[in-house]
Design a protein around this nucleic acid. Sequence first.
DNA 1: GACCGCTGTTGATCCATGTCAAGGCGAAGG
DNA 2: CCTTCGCCTTGACATGGATCAACAGCGGTC
Lengths: 210, 210
Amino acid sequence: MLAKQTTRRIIEPGTKLMSDGNEVTTYSNLLSGVVKLTKILADGRQQIVGLQFAPDFIGRPFKRENQLDAEAATRVSVCSFPKSVFERLIINSPSVEHRLHHQALKELDEARTWMLTLGRKTAAEKVASLLYYISCHIDPERPHLEGPVEFELPLTRAEIGDFLGLTIETVSRQFTKLRKSGAIEIVHNRSIKLLSLDQIRRHAKLDPET
Amino acid sequence: MLAKQTTRRIIEPGTKLMSDGNEVTTYSNLLSGVVKLTKILADGRQQIVGLQFAPDFIGRPFKRENQLDAEAATRVSVCSFPKSVFERLIINSPSVEHRLHHQALKELDEARTWMLTLGRKTAAEKVASLLYYISCHIDPERPHLEGPVEFELPLTRAEIGDFLGLTIETVSRQFTKLRKSGAIEIVHNRSIKLLSLDQIRRHAKLDPET
DNA sequence: GACCGCTGTTGATCCATGTCAAGGCGAAGG
DNA sequence: CCTTCGCCTTGACATGGATCAACAGCGGTC
């Protein structure tokens, strides 16, 4: 549908899809990879306010200007289309709006969960929470089973700090702590193995279900 | 419209409108007052993840269970209706869904702004940010002018702490600090006067516009 | 009008995390 | 092979905010 006006692109890590303060001109669907959404204070302090995984929709509907940056965290493949196409699509099809509404609510739930994490959890709990979150989203295929999970972190230590409101050093120390406690194995910097999901959940102060 | 199946109620501060883990049974529109949305960890640590002001819609569409508590922070007046009415309404009218979608996106923007505040701002900046935010929403009438604004805080010091990820004591100290710096006047505990919006914005590290 | 209980303030001390500094490791490039 | 650079780790020390403790103001209420 509307194939002519959509373009598929591969985007390298670090490339911006949207910039804070710029006019919204295109929307995208994320086909693979991870995109990070960030906010920056005038003095440079930075906060990641969300991660998007395939097959998320990227862009802020109904707004002239973006309020955040979207940047590829890994190599990413997206399908983009101009604002005009988006607007025609959504006017003609309530089911598209319904789908976007659903995603907005899902992201709202997530953002609020992160507010709890940022405001009330310790550094160790924050790192465990992020590891668990990523492990749940990184691989759309994998069912939610117990047992060890291994995956490649889509974020550097600095980005993890910017997500969790911590410094690089604190993040690094919490990784070593989790490793020494036997909850995770650091296969090689970005490549992490969660030895027991249940244990990670306990470290993250998450309920058994979540 | 549908007047028969909606009920108007006055709710006293501290009364719950929704509870985490409970099934969603009713939705409401907030007519006046302030409602706080909170999340709680198993060990009692608490985080306010949003405030709702008139005329916000309250409730999580399309979900069986609530993931947070909604509680009247002030005396509140709401107009409630059962889930079944809500579902009929939204199926028959795309414009209702559109309105809710808009609000969800607005709340998402706000939640992400709070993530930046929680993760990266200092205690003083947090308190100033909250005062500015409340001053902008507490009175739907007041235009966004400069000059002093006086209003009644809808939250106790403890609740402010739960919003900003701080303790009561730190909140209190930041109030005295802001008072001594001449940015605010504490008329009487809950009754605050912002002497200069511009100065508050600077304390909050907000851009001149926001 | 004395006694409570609740909310808020203030001071003294402590500690989790930030800051500063050094060094390790692997990849890229001469 | 050696150098450089980016990313990560570790140690020593500093500090913002938490914790603990005391007390003030201010309705209720008996």
